[in-house]
Design a protein around this nucleic acid. Sequence first.
DNA 1: GCGACAG
DNA 2: ATCTTGTCGC
Length: 214
Amino acid sequence: MIDLNRAKHVQELLARMVVLNDIFTYPPKFIGGLDISYRRSLACAVCIIMEYPSLKLVRKKVYIDEVRVPYIPTFLAFRELPFYITLCYEFKKRRDIVFLVDGHGLSHPRMFGIASHLGVVLDIPTIGVAKKKLAGTSRIVNGVEYITINNLAVCMKLQHNKLHKPLYVSIGHGVSLKTAVEIVKNTLKSGHLPEPIRIADKISRDIIKRRRIT
DNA sequence: GCGACAG
DNA sequence: ATCTTGTCGC
């Protein structure tokens, strides 16, 4: 079991290294998507890379391993980050790929959700894409709902279709909220999730489903 | 003390 | 997130 006080300290320390503006030139050449599916104690993580904005699939990476850490709200990164780092280490310091991470970025109690954590550790641009709110104050400006923390707009609630549930797009690392929303909007097709994450999710659950039970 | 709580 | 069947609706 992890030491939550130490984990908190790690988050608070690394949160100071988050960059709130674009560290790349828009538009990026590629857009990445990360997601994980589970079965018992086994986890299957998938990284998808697509051209932007054509969304043509150019890479697909899979990593399967035993999960070692339980899920504890606000500490998701300590459970899933090892998988994402394994998949994305080869992209360390690259500025032509922006990664969409399944979870929050700065819209986190200590302003350091998994998207920010991955971005800071590998020094790559990241955006948080979550299905539920986690932290912050809702403020509606011109009919748009923002999530603010310490009076800073860190997240925007996106209502794609009336049919689908809303998405919470947040700053991860090295991407402004404005650019993050622009990118996510350009990756939304018919589905609920942005294409890179939707495909990563589809592949990971398909793999974990047909995996032989040990 | 109470409620909230990504995946 | 996962477990878990059929079923109602765009």
